[in-house]
């Protein structure tokens, strides 16, 4: 009794030491390069500043500005007068479109690319190609494809009878959708790689057993592949949420710093940029960042809590 207790005790201590030492390098580096900046941002959110002069303590005033913006937006103020509300509304819609679609597409692509068929290599590379180009270049190419007489309208007109060409980039209704399409196109191939990796961890025996039981490919996909991929789905969804809610570069290129027609492509990150560098209110930018942080943290936390518990 006594000896086995000490055995467990020793093993546990060993595990604690091992765990802490394995994470030490990552934690130290991130404290130096990450948390200092984060604490600075927290500090900044209580100050009025213009980068050049002295900081001025203003208490919660910066947060008040954000809340007033939100209230004004809820009462239907035009977007120029409630930028944060506009950005938030847009980015939530955008995220609700992008994250599920990109995740699902990434799994589907990985599942297909993981099959032993001829030309599999070619398909894999073609799905991966969009991810290799930087998003600014991607956006530039797509602006051109999305033009009124561009290739996308041309293609849609051939697929959908009676299709009227859309001026995607200059339209209030379609700009956000166009940005979302570009994002999905670029990231689904990116996240495909994660799923390809995770699929290698699924034991073959499970598939073989399922086949013996007469389960078809679709059924195997939904009842074996997807559940076995759960931890990686958590990764892709969480990273997707973090990326989508902070989306900046696509909107910057496709919609411009002011969010394009009627602010249709305005995002919270654009608004934070504008606060920090066009209106020179870094304190307000920091306060808005904490609002965004709270939203990202809550959504990812809830998602992880529901699906992403550690195994032991």
């Amino acid at each position: 009794m006594f000896s086995s207790f000490s055995f467990y005790e020793k093993a546990r201590n060993k595990e604690i030491v091992a765990g802490l030492s394995l994470i030490s390098i990552a934690v130290i580096l991130n404290i130096v390069f990450g948390y200092f900046a984060m604490m600075f941002a927290l500090y900044l959110s209580f100050f009025k500043w213009d980068y050049i002069g002295e900081m001025q303590f203003v208490g919660l005033k910066n947060f008040e500005i954000v809340i007033r913006d939100l209230i004004r937006g809820l009462h239907g103020a035009p977007y120029l007068l409630s930028p944060f509300y506009t950005g938030l509304k847009n980015i939530l819609i955008y995220t609700a479109i992008v994250v599920p679609v990109q995740t699902f597409l990434a799994i589907v692509l990985a599942a297909f690319a993981n099959q032993k068929i001829k030309g599999q290599q070619f398909f894999k590379v073609s799905y991966f190609l969009p991810a290799t180009t930087s998003s600014v270049i991607v956006a530039l190419i797509f602006i051109w494809l999305f033009m009124k007489n561009g290739f996308i309208n041309f293609a849609l007109a051939h697929i959908i009878p009676g299709f009227q060409p859309i001026d995607w980039i200059n339209s209030r209704e379609y700009l956000l959708l166009a940005i979302a399409i570009v994002a999905i196109w670029g990231t689904s191939g990116h996240f495909m790689v994660s799923f390809l990796a995770a699929m290698q961890a699924i034991p073959k025996e499970i598939y073989e057993a399922a086949m013996l039981d007469g389960a078809g490919p679709i059924r195997r996909f939904f009842f074996i592949t997807i559940p076995m991929l759960r931890p990686m789905i958590v990764y892709v969804v969480v990273m997707g949420l973090i990326g989508a809610l902070q989306m900046f570069d696509l909107a910057w290129v496709m919609a411009g710093a002011n969010g394009g027609p009627g602010g249709a492509g305005y995002t919270v990150a654009l608004d934070i940029y504008n606060e920090a560098f066009t209106r020179i209110r870094p304190g307000v930018a920091a306060a808005k960042s904490w609002f965004l942080f709270a939203i990202i943290f809550t959504t990812t936390y809830l998602f992880q809590k529901k699906y992403g518990r550690a195994m032991r």
């Binding site: 990552a26 934690v27 991130n30 990450g34 948390y35 200092f36 900046a37 984060m38 600075f40 941002a41 900044l44 980068y51 969480v238 973090i242 902070q246 900046f248 990150a269 934070i272 940029y273 920090a276 560098f277 870094p282 930018a285 920091a286 960042s289 965004l292 942080f293 990202i296 943290f297 990812t300």
Partner: peptide, 15 residues
């Protein structure tokens, strides 16, 4: 650690 990814870069430029 994960929360480090959730702060937009524009407010961490100065630090």
């Amino acid at each position: 650690l994960l929360s480090l990814l959730m702060i937009p870069m524009f407010v961490t430029l100065v630090p």
